[in-house]
Nucleic acid binder design. Structure first.
Length: 653
DNA sequence: AGATAAGTGCTTTTT
DNA sequence: GCACTTATCT
């Protein structure tokens, strides 16, 4: 700790050792933001601040874990007591403690996207609305409107006026659906992702004693990636730190890329207004990238309106000039990327030092097939994650229902797997059971068996016995009850393995997934309930990385959307599909001219690279129905000065 | 409830 | 051109 002044530069040092009061750290890309936060935590702990009175809010749970691990290496084991995680995670923790105050039981379930869709479907049916027949928004659109209102803390009416100004939708019907959806969630006692934030904030706003308690507990609130906070998140931290004012916000308005989720970079722009006594520290010295890469990044972002002016100042010596490759089509692009990876590895780079970044998940499908064919090992962190796949969710519903009699979503999913059981019988069964299904007790299990259809009895009998055994298991060495892998084996045995085989051609793989998650559930969290909650709040990237852990993450090239690459860096970065319509995405631009968020996203992509940067831009793309048509190079690529990037056509085709 | 036939719409980004 | 949803029948 004595070397702090040598380890940190003057600005980082000032931020890490700042006194009390609000602090805004404007940390441009690669300027040691994480390092600064790590040392800030360490300094606070060293100064004798009790660890449990420090709250570190980050964008992924993994980021919090890594920062706290590094802080622990500096300041010792006491750091373990620091609260860290995403807003969703922290709100979840608070809500489990005080669920009753917002009208929930502590065991409330979390509805993921699929669950939410299903609930909206139910509601639409109930209200007799069919989105198809009359022009009514589809459930995805409805959910995104609801989410928008929740995250920006606006009445739904306002959002509808703004988003549907010239679309003739029946807004009063949309409002009805919204109400019914909320009512349905309340009936089932589930919260969706937005509810975690909304109710977390309600807890503080509507219960002065709770607010007071946590203000006393969290004397220091640190927020990473502050530019991507939304209205309720910023209110949450302002409220929590309102008394003592020890709020440290770290972020970079250039990197705000989640506006579509309600993030508002005005939160960071107006921080000084909301906290007039705030100290502002700018970190501009970039330790990550070569001057060539930084020069591109600076040019890319310079024209964007409304931003804190910052320029990345290079500290590293010069490197290679970044290269733009103009290729014919996606197939050539995939060939090129595979070749570049091969030669980089031949030059001594590890595959894990290389990342391929793209705007949207589907941009990577063609590349994935090419890499598999060429036996290049890769790790994809975008798209449908392990825990979102049907078979894993089926198995998780078994675990959920085994420990929570009130989890209706799990009940429907699990029992619905049995032969001859559909929505109708689920409804009548649930009613007959009186609104709960306690499988930890013999009466509960028998009651269910009694009302099942004959065809479903035998498989359920076996599962039921396994659940009984699960609950009768004496506490194991880690003082956890029940043996999850044994339970899951019995479930597979009873009927599920057969069902998988009937429905999927890759049934064996899926079965392996199911067993693997079972063993994770057994070992990973302190209790099974904790595990199930964590899983619900885990990002795809985190889930995939956890899976890859110990299986040679370093041996695999990373394939990721730019969004998921946020906060990360690699020695060699390849950006693919740098074409108009793809990056920037035509969907995001819509009719409006404003491409500033897409440009910020491109800026994020550029600044992930440490030493080597390649941007690939195909001239042709293939449409849905198999036609090929020309596409122009991305405006973001064209805007870069020709002196700073060399344009090439690969010669080996 | 589940199988089959006809009908649809068409990949942004994610906690 | 295909995947996914919805309607219809057994």
């Amino acid at each position: 700790m004595q070397d702090l002044q040598r380890i940190l530069n003057p600005e980082q040092y000032a931020a890490a050792t700042a006194g009390d009061g609000p602090l805004l750290v404007l940390a441009a890309a690669g300027t040691g933001k994480t390092q600064t936060l790590v040392y800030r935590v360490a300094v606070l702990v060293e100064r004798g601040v009790p660890p449990e009175s420090i709250l570190l809010l980050t964008f992924t749970n993994r980021a919090a874990k890594e920062m706290l691990e590094r802080a622990r290496q500096v300041a010792g084991d006491r750091v373990g007591g620091v609260w860290g995680g995403t807003f969703h995670h922290v709100c979840n923790r608070l809500l489990r403690r005080h669920a009753g105050l917002v009208g929930f039981r502590p065991g409330f379930a979390i509805a993921d996207r699929d669950d939410s869709k299903k609930l909206v479907d139910d509601v639409l049916k109930e209200l007799g609305i069919s989105p198809k027949s009359d022009n009514f928004p589809k459930r995805e659109v409805l959910l995104s409107l609801f989410g928008n209102a929740a995250n920006r803390d606006l009445p739904l009416e306002t959002v509808l006026e703004e988003k549907l100004r010239d679309v003739p939708f029946d807004t009063s019907a949309i409002l009805k659906v919204h109400e019914a959806y909320a009512r349905r969630k309340a009936e089932l006692g589930v919260m969706d992702f937005d509810d975690l934030l909304v109710n977390g904030l309600r807890l503080l706003e509507e219960h002065p004693e709770i607010l007071d308690f946590y203000r006393r507990q969290f004397r220091y609130v640190l927020v990473d990636e502050y530019q991507d906070t939304n209205a309720i998140q910023s209110r949450f931290v302002d409220l929590l730190s309102g008394e003592h004012g020890n709020l440290m916000a770290v972020g970079d308005d250039f990197q705000c890329i989640y506006s579509w989720r309600g993030a508002d970079f005005r939160n960071i722009m107006e921080f000084p207004k909301r906290h007039p006594d705030a100290r502002i520290i700018k970190l501009e010295r970039n330790y990550r990238s070569t001057p060539q890469i930084l020069s591109l990044a600076n040019t890319c972002i310079a024209g964007n309106p409304e931003q804190f002016q910052k320029t990345l100042v290079a500290t590293r010596p010069g490197g290679d000039r970044p290269i733009a490759y103009h290729v014919y089509n996606g197939a050539q692009q995939a060939e090129l990327v595979a070749t570049l990876i091969r030669s980089a590895v031949a030059d001594g780079l590890r595959p894990g030092d290389i990342a391929v970044l793209y705007r949207a998940h589907f941009h990577s499908i063609e590349l994935q097939m090419a890499l598999s064919r060429k036996r290049v090992r890769y790790l994809v962190t975008s798209g449908v994650g392990v825990f979102e796949q049907a078979h894993v969710k089926d198995m998780l519903s078994l675990l959920r229902l085994a420990i929570d009699p009130f989890d209706r979503l799990a009940f429907d999913r699990l029992l619905g797997l049995l032969p001859g059981v559909g929505p109708r019988s689920l409804e009548t069964m649930w009613k007959k059971l009186g609104g709960s299904c306690d499988l930890s007790k013999a009466e509960g299990r028998d009651a269910l068996l009694g009302i099942l259809r004959p065809a479903a009895r035998e498989p359920w009998q076996k599962v039921s016995e396994a659940i009984a055994a699960f609950h009768e298991d004496p506490p194991g060495p880690e003082s956890r009850k029940g043996n999850v892998p044994v339970l899951v084996d019995a479930f597979l045995d009873a009927f599920y393995a057969r069902l998988l085989r009937k429905s999927f051609e890759n049934a064996e793989e899926r079965e392996d997934d199911v067993r693997e998650v079972a063993s994770q559930a057994q070992t990973q969290a302190p209790t099974l309930a904790d595990f199930l909650q964590n899983v619900a709040l885990l990002t795809n990237a985190e889930a995939e990385l956890d899976r890859a852990d110990g299986r040679g993450e370093a041996d695999r090239v990373r394939l990721s959307t730019v969004h998921q690459a946020k906060g990360l860096e690699w020695p060699f970065v390849i950006i693919i599909w740098a074409c108009e319509g793809m990056f920037p995405s035509s969907r995001s631009l819509g009719e409006n001219e404003d491409d500033s968020e897409e440009r910020r996203l491109f800026y994020v992509a550029l600044t992930r690279a440490r030493s080597r940067l390649v941007i690939v831009s195909p001239e042709m793309r293939t449409s849905q129905d198999g036609y090929t048509f020309p596409c122009q190079a991305s405006r973001f690529l064209e805007e870069l000065p020709k002196t700073d990037i060399s344009h090439r056509t690969p010669g080996f085709f």
